[in-house]
Amino acid sequence: MFYNDLIAKQETENILKANYIVALEEKIPTRKTAHIKNAPLIYRYFAIPKPEKLKLSELDENEFTIKFVFNINSNIPGAYVFSSGKNMGVFKAVGYPEDVANFYKLESYKGYMWLAHGRFPTNTPGWWGGAHPFNLLNISVVHNGELSSYDTNRKYLEEFGYICTLQTDTEVAVYIFDLLLRKHGLPIELACKVVASPLWKQVDRMSPKEKILYTNLKIIYGRALLNGPFSMIIAYEDGFIAINDRIKLRPLTAAKKGNMIYVASEEAAIRQVCKNPESVWMPRGGEPVIAELIRENEKEMYSTKEVTA
């Protein structure tokens, strides 16, 4: 949680503790960093919904939590839920990446998957809540580009109860993937073909079976199409998706070494963390790279695949 002041913190905690059993609450550990200024109050809570509240709501735990997130972000001035998943965490701020890492003491954390993005906002204000990643439940997104379809996407999402309050287009991408994957249960490959759907001239050249499938997807989910120049990484509990717009107006590069998968806008960024990858490739527009976590004998490793229409 980000809080601008103690009043926002108290109001949020009143709602939180009325609806959740809080096992642990604490200020997120940070260190003083010269170039990180005007930091909000930053707290985290480990909690589960109270059984009686969950039963009364007639929602599952995920929907219950989403309602809580939107309630706080929409109705409590100065409070913002920036991370709401399990076994994951979001760290975001206004500053250079190395300063943000130092501020949050990231060297003390371990994980099998990391997302990072240095965002330079153009059409929206730069503020702590607008920094990347954007998160809802276990889906987190980093995004380079501009979604010209934002208003269409936002109005479509509002029909399903999502509320956009965070002053940036990336927010709709998180909610669209939550809608497609969690609520509608689409396979990952088809969800990718919704947000970066084939052009009609490509559909016309498909086999009859594929033509029916992609025509229906475009008709049913037309307002979930992410239009405009973008490259994007979407992380979830079992892996991640890297995808760019269908005519590739933003760069996207992928690489592999051993059981590690890397994606970035440029190859140079990958080589900063992996000097000699075994393979490097640039996916075509609208073709996702999907890296899935495989658990074999409790050993974690990745497989990867590209998906074409």
Rank of each mutant, 00 (worst) to 15 (best):
residue 5 D to Q: 06
residue 7 I to A: 07
residue 7 I to K: 09
residue 8 A to Y: 02
residue 8 A to H: 02
residue 9 K to Q: 08
residue 10 Q to S: 15
residue 13 E to R: 10
residue 13 E to G: 06
residue 14 N to T: 12
residue 18 A to G: 14
residue 19 N to Y: 06
residue 21 I to S: 15
residue 22 V to N: 03
residue 22 V to W: 13
residue 22 V to F: 12
residue 22 V to C: 13
residue 23 A to G: 11
residue 25 E to L: 04
residue 25 E to V: 01
residue 27 K to L: 08
residue 27 K to A: 08
residue 31 R to Q: 15
residue 32 K to N: 14
residue 35 H to I: 03
residue 35 H to K: 13
residue 36 I to T: 13
residue 38 N to D: 11
residue 39 A to W: 00
residue 42 I to V: 14
residue 43 Y to L: 12
residue 46 F to C: 10
residue 47 A to I: 04
residue 48 I to Q: 07
residue 48 I to E: 11
residue 50 K to H: 05
residue 53 K to H: 11
residue 54 L to N: 11
residue 54 L to G: 08
residue 54 L to P: 13
residue 54 L to K: 06
residue 55 K to C: 09
residue 57 S to P: 12
residue 60 D to E: 06
residue 62 N to I: 14
residue 63 E to N: 08
residue 64 F to S: 01
residue 64 F to T: 02
residue 67 K to Q: 02
residue 68 F to D: 03
residue 70 F to A: 09
residue 70 F to N: 14
residue 71 N to T: 10
residue 73 N to C: 11
residue 75 N to Y: 09
residue 76 I to V: 12
residue 80 Y to Q: 08
residue 83 S to H: 10
residue 83 S to D: 15
residue 85 G to Q: 09
residue 85 G to E: 01
residue 85 G to Y: 02
residue 92 K to R: 07
residue 96 Y to R: 14
residue 96 Y to Q: 15
residue 97 P to M: 07
residue 97 P to I: 03
residue 101 A to G: 04
residue 103 F to L: 03
residue 108 S to F: 07
residue 108 S to E: 11
residue 108 S to P: 00
residue 109 Y to L: 14
residue 115 L to S: 04
residue 116 A to S: 11
residue 117 H to A: 04
residue 117 H to N: 05
residue 118 G to D: 15
residue 120 F to M: 05
residue 121 P to Q: 06
